[in-house]
Amino acid sequence: MVKMNFEIKDLSFAYRRHPVFIEANLTLMTSGVYGLVGPNGSGKSTLFNLITGLLHPTQGAITLDGTVLTPNLVFANVAYAQDSSVLYPYLTGRDHIRFVALQHHVAAARIAAVSEQLEITQFVDQRVSSLSQGQKQRLMIVLALLPEARLLLMDEPLNGLDPDSVMIIRNLLEDFKSTAQMVIVSSHNLDELDKVTDQIIFKVDQGLQFETVADGAEARYAELYHHARPVKAGDGHA
């Protein structure tokens, strides 16, 4: 664990008349893996877009180590593995990797290592349009990992992944626990999230609530959002 200071202060944002955040606050003090949980459409991706400057808050500030995030700072310190629709469908994976690597001065050895780690070398020369959802997802994660940013945002990284890929990502997230990077992962796969972290940021109403969930994210999710979740057979619960 390394000391860091990521802070969201009095953040407000609305899509036209629909407020997503009203004076939301969040402070994260150390590196490590954090989960971001909320119902569909609650604003998880919006939060990531606000952090990266793709959206502009109507009020409030987002700071990293006391400095407000500007496009330049985001470029230098923040990586974002977002929805794969931002990739150019007619470019290959290698085209995207080459661009990101040149922009961030990433060494060839690191490209090779990350590509190996996420097992994308087999399809890296195919056009994005011909890749499966899982392959695109892995490519997006490679692109986010290349710059070794201090703050890594991952939006639903487990979506559309086969069990092998899920395991690769899980191992990757486990590794992040011992690095100097801060990783915020949004996911609906609460089981998987529980396996890698117990530090969860919940999106509640128009605010953010940070909690350490000893009993797992799923139970807390049901409490917060008033869902009576069906109990699966073999869960060990009554």
Binding site: L54, P71, V74, F75, Y80, V86, H96, F99, Q103, H104
Partner: peptide
């Protein structure tokens, strides 16, 4: 796709 561009420029 412009988000990809905007994220990777200073």
């Amino acid at each position: 796709t412009h988000q990809f561009l905007l994220l990777h420029v200073r």
